[in-house]
Amino acid sequence: MSKLHTVNKSPFEKSSLDACLQHVLDGASVLLLEDGVYGALRGSAAAESVERALASVKVYVLGEDLKARGFGEDRLINGISVVDYAGFVDLAAEADAVQAWL
């Protein structure tokens, strides 16, 4: 069993994504939502740490929030999966706990 971590702030606004990625255990899941979706974009200054994390954790992005900010799925870092709210519920149910990095 593993945890679902949620990050809802941009890595260019807060350090919560970095803090999260430094603490996640192998096999955990990280969901980027709200302004957190900026952490899912390819080619940004924050992308490297996410790409590194992808070797040991699963990273998801909330599709609605990505779209609301004008980004298509073609802008995502390779290996990040898109979920909707129903998918978010599934991730929370599958994990043994949900940790919000606020």
Binding site: N8, L33, E34, Y85, A86, V89, L102
Partner: peptide, 25 residues
């Protein structure tokens, strides 16, 4: 933990709750 119209937390929580209910949780 966040008020309405501040950022998005209340909206996210609402959509999550609705989706969870729709799934029978």
């Amino acid at each position: 933990n966040e008020g309405p119209y501040q950022h998005q937390a209340s909206d996210s929580a609402y959509h999550f709750t609705k989706a969870a209910l729709a799934k029978g949780h």
